[in-house]
Amino acid sequence: MARMLDAIRKFFAAPEAAAAADDPVVAVAALLVELARADADYTDAERVVVEHLLAGLFDLDAAEARRARLDGEAAQARAADLVRFTRVVKTQLSEADRVALMEGLWSVALSDGTRDPHEDALLRKLAPLIAVTDRDSAEARMRALARGAGTDGGAC
């Protein structure tokens, strides 16, 4: 029992965990992964969409985007809630980047060709938390749909 408590204390005291939470790339990756996992079916196609979005949003090469996705998966799995990530996005990304993220979130949600109620609920929750208006979110959804998300794997 003492070893388990020590491990928990070490995890919460780890400076790299705190630093990762403040990294906008990791924060965005964690939100994208959270959305991809919202329907309990995190597919390889969704992983590809997440990597593609990260590469586009942060000008990453394929290897960097894969690493960012993996870091986001780890951060998302450790997080008790999404507030730490939405706070970073809200304070460190421009309005245009937050709207682009919202469009990316819609691309992930639509990438499997269905609108899952869990994904819809999470998207409604995330928009105000990252300071994106309902109108901007709706327009982002329309752009994601027009680009073909939900019909061909959601490539953006």
Rank of each mutant, 00 (worst) to 15 (best):
P128H: 05
A138V: 13
H52K: 08
V99L: 04
M142H: 10
R147K: 14
S111G: 03
T133N: 11
L145F: 05
R143G: 03
P15T: 11
L35S: 09
E73Q: 11
R135D: 14
K125N: 15
D71V: 01
E34M: 08
L60K: 07
L35A: 02
A7E: 15
F12M: 11
D59N: 15
E51D: 10
A30K: 06
L82N: 10
L93S: 10
G150Q: 06
E119V: 00
I8H: 05
V26W: 02
P117H: 03
K125P: 02
D22Q: 15
D97T: 13
A100V: 02
E103Y: 03
L93D: 08
G72C: 05
V33M: 02
R9F: 02
S94Q: 02
D44Y: 10
D97N: 14
A80M: 12
A17E: 14
P24C: 11
L31P: 12
R78K: 08
E103H: 06
R3H: 11
E95I: 01
G153E: 12
L5P: 01
G113A: 10
A68N: 10
W106N: 03
E139Y: 14
L57H: 08
R147C: 06
E64T: 10
R37K: 13
R84M: 06
L145K: 07
A155V: 09
R47K: 15
F11I: 15
A80I: 10
R84V: 02
A96M: 13
S107K: 15
R47H: 08
M1V: 08
A100R: 14
F85V: 00
A19Y: 07
Q92P: 00
T86N: 13
A18V: 05
G148K: 02
D61G: 02
R69M: 11
P24Q: 09
K90P: 00
A77N: 09
A17W: 04
E95N: 07
L32Q: 10
M102E: 05
A36C: 08
A149N: 08
A55P: 00
T133Q: 12
G113H: 09
D41S: 09
R147E: 13
D136K: 00
L70R: 11
G154Y: 05
D81W: 08
G154M: 10
R37V: 02
A27G: 08
E95S: 05
P15Q: 15
A45H: 04
R141V: 03
K10L: 09
R3Y: 07
V108I: 14
D6F: 03
S107A: 12
Y42N: 01
S137W: 04
D59I: 11
V50Q: 08
M142Q: 14
A63T: 06
P15Y: 13
V88L: 13
R9G: 01
L126Y: 03
A65Q: 06
V49L: 14
M142I: 11
C156D: 13
T151M: 09
S94K: 13
L53I: 12
C156H: 15
R37T: 00
D61V: 07
S137D: 09
S107E: 06
R147G: 15
